[in-house]
Design a protein around this nucleic acid. Structure first.
Length: 260
DNA sequence: AGCTTATTCAGATAAGATGG
DNA sequence: CCATCTTATCTGAATAAGCT
């Protein structure tokens, strides 16, 4: 059981986007975001000294997003994410959804109208990809800058769970004791969400895997449990908003020669 | 001591995995 | 086709050990 801890952040925004893909596409593909699900977590037990342990979901934002470069979803993508063509057809484009999301952040007193931070908040996702890759790609395609409030503080929850696992499991502790002194030292374990849940002693995955909102809610369970166990939650992922991929042409153009 | 061979260790390099 | 992280493999220097 964790002790109460002075935590750095007031709020956490757990995010797990879904994006377009085709069978066999690799990490350089111009993925377009098609679902933007976010849960807002806040402390519910901060004492006078600001020490906390209990996080709770206080709000959810969820919107599908209509892709513009390749508006038609592949069969593969629909099967993977469970998202239908109709759902994206009737959705807004990314810049519009981002505006709505910004309003959400203002309503919850995380940003002011000028986009300044009103509280310390940190985005959380499973793996480093969501903001580092998908958001950066999407902003290029949408011809908009990556908002500063989105690229600052990012925590890869999968990695944190791995670090927690290394530091706390019997196997890892034993390994460390046996190998006093000279050994390659801590190999960090990382694994998919269902096994992360198990590692933290939680009940199995709830909902449908690769559904953005369900993934997001399960990541929330991980973050809440890490906090409950007294683990400090802080950013561990750098974002380069100007990162470029080979298919990026001038002024938001996707070079078509890469994809027939 | 002088030489050779083995062992260890650290750093470099190569290879593999990676989410939607 | 990118970038990053992790693991495995290689390499070379330093060290240790064995031998005459």
């Amino acid at each position: 059981m964790g002790k109460r801890l002075k935590q750095v952040y007031d709020a956490f925004l757990v995010l797990d986007v879904e994006a377009t893909c085709v069978e066999g596409s690799d990490f350089a593909y111009p993925n377009e975001i098609i679902e933007w699900p976010v849960c807002l977590l806040r402390w519910k037990d901060a004492n006078v000294k600001g020490k906390t342990r209990e996080l709770e979901i206080v709000a959810e934002f969820r919107s599908f997003v209509r892709p513009t470069w390749r508006p038609q979803l592949s069969e593969f993508c629909q099967a993977l994410t469970g998202i239908t063509q109709e759902q994206v057809d009737s959705a807004s484009t990314f810049p519009e959804v981002l505006q709505d999301f910004r309003k959400f952040l203002e309503e919850h007193e995380l940003l002011d109208e000028a986009g300044h931070r009103l509280a310390r908040f940190c985005f959380c996702s499973d793996g480093p990809y969501d903001i580092r890759d998908f958001v950066v790609k999407q902003c290029f395609i949408s011809k908009i800058p990556v908002p500063a409030w989105l690229s600052g503080d990012v925590m890869d929850v999968r990695r944190v769970v791995g670090e927690w696992h290394d530091a706390n499991t019997a196997a890892a502790v034993e390994r460390r004791q046996v190998n006093v002194g000279a050994f390659p030292l801590p190999r960090r374990m990382t694994f998919p969400i269902p096994r992360q849940l198990h590692a933290l002693g939680l009940e199995p995955f709830v909902g449908r895997q690769h559904s953005g909102i369900d993934d997001t809610r399960n990541i929330c369970r991980l973050v809440i449990e890490l906090a409950r166990r007294g683990w400090r939650l802080e950013p561990n992922t750098a974002i380069n908003p100007n990162r470029r991929w080979p298919w990026m042409g001038k002024r938001g153009k996707v070079l078509e020669e890469y994809y027939s």
